[in-house]
Design a protein around this nucleic acid. Structure first.
Lengths: 119, 119
DNA sequence: CACACATTTTCACGATTCTAGAATGATAGA
DNA sequence: TCTATCATTCTAGAATCGTGAAAATGTGTG
């Protein structure tokens, strides 16, 4: 994940409704949630939610699939993982944040070598 | 760190110039950097940088101190740690992101009990 | 095919954010 | 005190973002 992607992911999460929607999807797990369910749970008009889900999708943080006439959204854990790896690696130089987070920084570096997931 | 703080921190980092400044400060380490040095390094006009540094400071991600006629900024590692803890805890439910990041989630929970740093 | 329903797209408006020139405040040295 | 330097605040214009009504698209059912 490069800086451009990181800024996009951070911007996607830096909005109350979107963060709430994302957290809801994380809670929902791999099964995901229909757009309507999210809209109802968050008490947000459908068009507004659709706008935000699109933002999250553009940032690669969620994926969608059609299920009948519903659209099911689910979190893309890989993207979230990459974001956290970016933060621990670039913004916690040498694991200065917390001793325990240093372990992740190294995991992040290892991931960087493996590279290429989602095109 | 509650959701409000998390959104503020994410918003603070979700901007190219601010993320670049923050990364620079992380690289600089505990010694920090003068506002002018950052402005020069990033090739950004002083008023623009000042605006962004203020945003970072408001989000609690950086701290400043006066040193002669310079103002030295340094990263507030605790805040960054809390942000990462929030993300791993709330957006990687059960460490689904990556096996290795699960360790951090537990560290985050442990931190939550310890609580209270910076007022 | 016609209908009902879920979602997305389009559009317009107001609010917020980003940018940088000009002016102001603070500090050190002559 | 005067001057130079560094940083911030003031200000205004441009750009971006968030919102929700109305219309359009797609999907399953009768």
């Amino acid at each position: 994940m490069d800086t451009r992607d990181a800024v996009a992911a951070l911007a996607a999460l830096a909005q109350e409704t979107r963060l709430a929607a994302f957290r809801l999807l994380v809670q929902a797990g791999d099964g995901g949630l229909a757009a309507g369910e999210i809209a109802q749970a968050l008490d947000v008009p459908a068009p507004t939610l659709s706008f935000h889900l699109k933002e999250l999708a553009n940032a690669g943080l969620v994926a969608s699939r059609q299920d009948g006439r519903n659209v099911i959204y689910r979190t893309a854990y890989a993207a979230m993982d990459e974001l956290i790896a970016y933060l621990t690696d670039n913004c916690c130089h040498g694991g200065q944040c917390l001793p325990k987070t240093a372990a992740v920084a190294t995991a992040a570096k290892r991931r960087a070598k493996t590279q290429e997931r989602q095109p």
